[in-house]
Design a binder for these strands. Structure first.
Lengths: 127, 127
DNA sequence: ACAGGATGTATCGGTCGCCGATATATATCG
DNA sequence: CGATATATATCGGCGACCGATACATCCTGT
């Protein structure tokens, strides 16, 4: 009925990386780029458009919030801070990735999912 | 100069999940949906458009290839198989995710990246 | 003095991945 | 005989991503 819902937040990998980079301490935009590059060993280098897009979406979702400004050497720095909900989301997504990677390693190794400790094993193969 | 490069393959999460689902054995499209749902404990349920889009891209990138057809109960099944390059890509992406999740857990736990065993520890924090 | 690069912010436009909806066909169940 | 499940595939729109661009300030090299 509502003409257009605000489009639910999607935890993309880049949004996750930004959230992760801001987790230890508040940073300003430009510093986030470097933090993400370090986190990924240089594999992911955000451009400005990607960075601010991700920050906007994270802010709109309430996972990140502005944390004041500072002027250093005449240049403005706008800081961002992870909210409580943001910390929870970061931990949740991290656990999801860890579980997925673990499952993937087992799958690639050739283990049948019938082993013990397999959390949610669904009903037998549909066919 | 070439007017349009074929757009390099991007290993998105969904493409990765499809690749992973096909790794143990060849499957037909519809079965991949179920396999991905199982792999992710129901978190990711592909629609037809997402599935065939991912299969097309994986095939174009040479990570997956057609593996014949079969008619079961009057319905056609088109099978897909992971290529050698596909297996390598799957292992590589799995390792990337594992490393990222591990780094993320350390980051969220508050560990300084100066700890032992940290593979690529970059230069000290820029600021 | 001035050009160029690094720092720092932000927006625009195009490409492309994702996803709901839709279409077609067959077998099965109520 | 319609609904549901299996199985294929495409279309159209939305939105994430990214290169390019713009603007301002400070530092360095020539």
């Amino acid at each position: 009925m509502s003409p257009r819902a605000p489009a639910a937040f999607r935890m993309t990998e880049q949004a996750y990386l930004v959230l992760l980079a801001l987790s230890p301490e508040p940073l300003h935009g430009y510093a986030v780029i470097g933090a993400v590059r370090d986190l990924t060993d240089g594999a992911t280098v955000l451009g400005a458009a990607s960075l601010y897009g991700a920050l906007d979406r994270l802010t709109a979702a309430g996972l990140v919030e502005p944390a004041g400004e500072a002027v250093v050497d005449g240049r403005v720095r706008r800081y961002y801070r992870v909210t409580e909900a943001g910390h929870r989301a970061a931990q949740q997504e991290t656990e999801r990735l860890r579980a997925l990677a673990a499952r993937a390693e087992r799958t690639l190794r050739g283990d049948r999912p019938t082993g013990p400790g397999a959390l949610g094993d669904l009903a037998g193969s549909p066919a």
